[in-house]
Structures are given as structure tokens and as C-alpha cells.
Design a protein around this nucleic acid. Structure first.
Lengths: 364, 364
DNA sequence: CGGTGCTGCTAAATCGATTTGCTAGGGCCT
DNA sequence: AGGCCCTAGCAAATCGATTTAGCAGCACCG
């Protein structure tokens, strides 16, 4: 038989200070279900059923339920999340893998992801691999060890199939079990090139992305196609490539210096991203040429600072925040769905041309 | 007595496919300690002791240890993190509260935090409150419910004392149990103003931060002091204030427009941060004035894009990444330390003046 | 031969919550 | 009075790993 250590009702009436009620209530000690139940003179099972509004609590009279709720509230009881996770085999946690935090791209996607996940009661771990191969390998493992229910990989192609749902933002590799959220690169390339073409540009230079960025290849393919459609085959002399792991405009600056020094003439430059475009603008200016009068520059992404460059940057906008939200939404949907059910292999996102000051009619 | 379901050695010799060995090994099913032990014909306790290299495993002969390690490796056994957390009452997880992800400031601090935490085997949850009071209240609670071992608050003063260590980056409020990582604002203000003064500037305008940003008040106080020291009392007509929650340069643009329209003459502008400075530059230019010839502009923070503005931005650098790293380091140190031991109330960080193109000698 | 000590391992309790399957006691019906 | 049902709630198993206390068997000693 259990011993009633004290008379609950009297206790409530007299408002005995917390510290006097139970040793388990030393300030700072979190309240456990067991101590809560003991305080009420009930079994933990009963309290659990009531608090979780389980159907099995049907037969518990309201009088008792109220007593339980009141006491739980008074002691500010919160079920231990870890214990609950263990029991339910659910952590309501996902992992997010990004190349790095701190540059426009990843941070924006992240903020979209965060918005949706928290709304749905999920938390997330972030890991950034900074393009180091061993970290790309190891982090997904660590995340799985932490029992995440799914993974979102941003600009990071997944190598191995994983035992949890994976959604990839700009991942670009068809892997079993991975849903890809990708920009419609064909449309993006056509938007940009058609626009330049209509402004009279015929000699267009390009800056490709680094080989490790998963957008590089598909975007380049799309550019080649769109160029051919316009009858302007890509000139390899007018093509540079970002080199290095950093996400600073310096990379764009350096390629552009080279292009200007060794390549042929051009009246427009299509950069792999806005950060590179910013560097390019500086390089072009240093040779005394004006933007957009002598050379038009168009970027990609529409990061926050693009609108506030001088001149402000014409660019192809990727709705990065939106893509993050969609990634999160897709992931949660897949987590909630039994494994054997089909899920979409890819979700396509529409780009948008944002015209600002860095582009104008061709000089010749 | 336990039943040996199969002869382990033979099994190893014959390389029976995994799926045939045990029902617990259906692909995708993670291996539990129990099934691992059963496969070896040992008790879970034994396996646990050996795998954790516990001192109590002293008496287990190497022969057995090797057998255990081999089997664990073969089945790729990883201890369930949730179960382990429950047992040890440790989660190796901290919470990070930021105003928002996606603008330069928070993202940079975050990347410093991440670097240090992951190195030390900790993971972190990020929540962004977007300056909404209810979220600022609720998120710390949610994080505690998730059993984080500590919290880092970025530019977010904590209101209530929490039952875990808290480290605040630019928090600026003396709360029991919170360690503050703050820039030395006096020095920052002196660096900037002395520099402008030496360039001949006597009429200096200022853009203050929003009232909700915790750097606003201390920085302003420091500016007033430094101004007085130089014999240039702050002119309220030349003082604007950022308004609104966004972190876009538009805010700086708008205040500056106002200052230019209604304030007096000035030859230099000291903005609350780089983002505001970028907006200010645009506003100034739109009136036909040149930077730095007519007006010098100095920012604050040294975000990544500051160096690649046109003109590039003179600014007071806060070592944001570093501050994140120090915050993480301080937090982990406090987590590892018994509660009753004294901990520093504040850690001061040195700013640095970065001179670029947006400032020059005074025009008059 | 009884005792001591070592070797090699295990049983059981624990972390905190959940959930299934029960039971004690009372009321009601026949 | 016996049977049945309902009410109110509880015991125990479970999630997976850890850890303490201790057991069985053998060797060796006196």
C-alpha cells in the first residue's frame, strides 16, 4: 500500500510554501511525473493518462482530473522531453546540412526552414561542412546518431542513401529516397540571356561556379542551351570560373580581372551569383569602364545586399526563403508518410528576373 | 538460463548475409545493445561495460573484448543517443536565440558558435524571435523543455533568470547567472570619432539603432562621451534613429533622407551599423552629393559585404565570428563548472577601425 | 578440507514517461 | 444471494543504455 504523505486538499487551502511540500521541489529541481503523482496521492500512470488526455482516462472523474491539472500547473510540470522521445521513438528534430552559415545564400534558406519547422513543433540541428569532404561524410552520420527524423541538405549532394527522409535544396543528384528542391535553371538562363539579347548584347561573358557547388553544372548546361537558342554560342574565351572555397566577392573579382586581361571584348557579364557579380563590378571599374554603360552585369540569387549595391544589381532571383520553407514542408510531409508510399522526386521552383541598375543597352 | 540462438564463431566464419542472422537486423533497423548482446551470447551489461571502456570491464579478458568490438563494428552498432541522454541527464545540446537568421550580424556570430560547439561534440538548436515579444518569452522555455544544457542569446537581453547557464552576446543587462560578451563601446566610439576629428570633421551626424537592439543604448552613451571629450557635443538635429524591425538598408536610407531634408549641414555620418550605412550612402548620393568628398560615412560591424560596397565602407569592426566562438567557449566552460563557482559577469571584446573608401578629409 | 581471492560475467535498478491489461469495490438486476 | 457491469485507478512492461553490487566457479593456501 502506498502511504499518503500529506493531505493534498488541505495543502492547497493553506498555500504551504513550495519548499515545504516535498523534497523533490527544491527550487531548480524539475518536477517529475513521479513526484507530481506522489504529491497527489495517485499513481504516475493515472496522472500521465489524464495529462495526455488519453482515451483511457475516460473513466477518471472530473474532480480528480481537475485536481491533477491544478497541481501540474502549480508546480509547472513539463514532461521530460528525452524520456518521451525514448518511449515514442520520436524526437521532433531534423538535421540541416549547409556549406556554411554567414553568407547570403545558406542563411536565407535556413531562415525559411526555421520558420516552417518551428511552426510545426520541430527543432533542428545545423551543421556546416565548409566543403570539407570528411565533414560531408561524417555530419549526416552524427545527425542520425542524434536521432533526427529527417535531413535537409542545402547545396550539398548526398552520397549514400540514408535511413531517414532527405530533402535536398539544390542538390542535383538523383539518389533513392531524396527529394530535390531545384530552381528551373532552363528558365533562369533564358530569362537572363533573352533580356541581355533584347538589350542588344551579343558578346556575353560568363562566370561559372566552383565545381563543388551543385548548381554549377545544371546552370551551365542551361546557359549553353539558352545561348544556342539565341544563336549566340558560348565563347570559351569569355568564360571564367570561380576558384576557391570562400564565399567572398574576391573570387569574382579575380576571375573578372583575368577575363578582362586575357579574354576578348564583351559588353555583358553573367555571373554565377550576386557575390561574384559584386566582385566583378569592382574589377571592371578598376579598368576605368563604366557599369552599365560599357559593360552590363547580371547576378544570380538576389541576396539582400543586391538591391543596395552601387549600382544596384540586376539579377535572377531565387526565392531562397521560400525554397527553405518548401524544403521543410516537404520533409515533414515525408516524415509523416509511411515509407512505402511514393513521394515526388523533385520540386521545381520558378526564378524571376529583377531588373536594376547594373544592366543597360549594349554599347556597340 | 539464456538460450544461445546461434553459434557466433561459425556465423562469422561463414559470412551469413546480415538479413539471415537475426530478425533485429532487418535492414534499416538500428541495432540495440540488447540484440547485439544476444548475438554474442552475453549480457547487455557486459557489452556496455566493454564498449564504454568502463573501469569495471577490467576483468573481462581481451578475447571477449575483441569479440564484442568486432561484432559491434560488423553490425555498425551505435548507442542510442536518446537513451543515453536520459540515463546521464546530459544532452550535449545548447540553444541559441537570435533576432533573425539571414542578415549579416546574426549569421556571423552563429558561424563562430557553430565552429566551437561542434568541435566539442555539442549540437545546438537555433530559434529566431524576429523581435516578437511573445517569442522572446516562449523560446527559452521551449529550449529548456528540450533539455538544452545552456543558452546563448544573441542581441537579446534575457528577462528571467534561467535554470541553465546563459551567455549573452551584446545582451547588456546585468542578470544573475548571465555572462555577457560585449564590445568595448567606449573604445569603439573613440576610435571612430577621433578618426573623423583628425580628418577635420566637426559637424558629424549620427544614426542611432532601434530601441529594441541591445547595443543601441550603450553605444549611444559611448558616442556622447567620446564626442564631449573631443569638444564636439552631439547635436540633436543631426541625430536620426532607425525605425522598424527589418534588417534592410532601407531603414538607413529613410533616416538619412530625413536628416538631409530637415537637419543641418554635416560633413560626416556615423551609422549604427553597416547595413544602415549602405542605405545612407544611397540616400546621400541621390541628393547629388559625393562620398567621401562631400560627406564621409562610417559604419559599424564590418559585415562581409562592407568591403565590397562602392565605395567600400570604412567601419568599426566587431569580430563577430570571434565573439560567437568566445560565447560558445564560455558557455561550455560554465556548463562544465559546478553552479556555485563564480563565473565572470562580462567578457570585453576589442573593436578595430577599418579604413576604406567611404571616408576622407572634411570638405569645409 | 575449509577458506580466500581472483576471474568473468550477470541481475537488477535506474533515468522519466507511456500504455496495456488488469482489479477492487460498489451498485444494480434478477 | 449470485452474477454482472461500471467506476476509478493501479501494476508492470517498455523504450535503450548504464552502473552497482554481487554471484559462480576455479585456483591456491594452510
Amino acid at each position: 500500500m502506498r502511504v499518503r504523505l500529506w493531505e493534498t486538499p488541505r495543502m492547497l487551502r493553506k498555500k504551504i510554501p513550495v519548499s515545504r511540500i516535498s523534497p523533490a521541489l527544491a527550487p531548480g529541481q524539475p518536477v517529475s511525473l513521479k513526484s507530481l503523482a506522489a504529491g497527489l496521492g495517485l499513481a504516475p500512470a493515472t496522472v500521465s493518462l489524464v495529462i495526455n488526455r488519453a482515451p483511457a482516462a475516460r473513466s477518471i472523474p472530473n474532480r480528480t482530473k481537475d485536481r491533477i491539472f491544478a497541481e501540474a500547473k502549480r508546480l509547472n510540470y513539463r514532461a521530460n522531453f528525452v524520456a518521451r522521445s525514448l518511449r515514442h521513438q520520436r524526437t521532433f528534430t531534423v538535421g540541416v546540412v549547409v556549406p556554411e552559415i554567414g553568407e547570403g545564400y545558406g542563411a536565407l534558406v535556413l531562415s525559411g526552414i526555421e520558420e516552417h519547422l518551428l511552426q510545426e513543433g520541430y527543432f533542428y540541428f545545423v551543421v556546416s561542412h565548409r566543403h570539407r569532404a570528411n565533414l560531408k561524410e561524417e555530419y549526416p552520420r552524427l545527425l542520425l546518431e542524434r536521432a533526427v527524423e529527417g535531413i535537409i541538405a542545402v547545396d550539398t549532394p548526398s552520397e549514400h542513401p540514408l535511413p531517414v527522409p532527405v530533402v535536398s535544396v539544390s542538390g542535383h543528384r538523383a539518389i533513392e529516397g531524396v527529394t530535390n528542391i531545384v530552381l528551373d535553371h532552363s528558365r533562369a538562363a533564358r530569362l537572363a540571356l533573352k533580356y541581355l539579347f533584347d538589350l542588344g548584347h551579343r558578346k556575353i561573358a560568363f562566370i561559372r561556379g566552383q565545381s563543388f557547388s551543385s548548381d554549377t553544372a545544371p546552370r551551365w548546361r542551361a546557359i549553353e542551351e539558352a545561348s544556342n537558342e539565341l544563336g549566340l554560342p558560348v565563347n570559351s574565351k569569355l568564360t571564367g570560373e570561380l576558384e576557391g572555397v570562400s564565399s567572398s566577392p574576391v573570387l569574382g573579382y579575380e576571375v573578372t580581372k583575368q577575363l578582362l586581361a586575357t579574354g576578348g571584348e564583351f559588353t555583358a557579364l553573367f555571373a554565377f551569383n550576386d557575390v561574384a557579380a559584386i566582385g566583378a563590378i569592382r574589377a571592371i571599374r578598376e579598368t576605368g569602364r563604366k557599369i552599365p554603360e560599357d559593360i552590363s552585369v547580371i547576378g544570380f540569387d538576389d541576396i539582400q545586399s543586391a538591391a543596395f549595391q552601387n549600382p544596384s544589381l540586376t539579377t535572377i532571383r531565387q526565392p531562397l526563403r521560400k525554397m527553405g520553407e518548401i524544403a521543410a514542408e516537404t520533409l515533414l510531409k515525408r516524415i509523416a508518410t509511411p515509407k512505402n508510399i511514393r513521394h515526388p522526386k523533385a520540386v521545381s521552383i520558378e526564378p524571376e528576373l529583377i531588373i536594376r541598375e547594373s544592366t543597360g543597352t549594349a554599347s556597340r
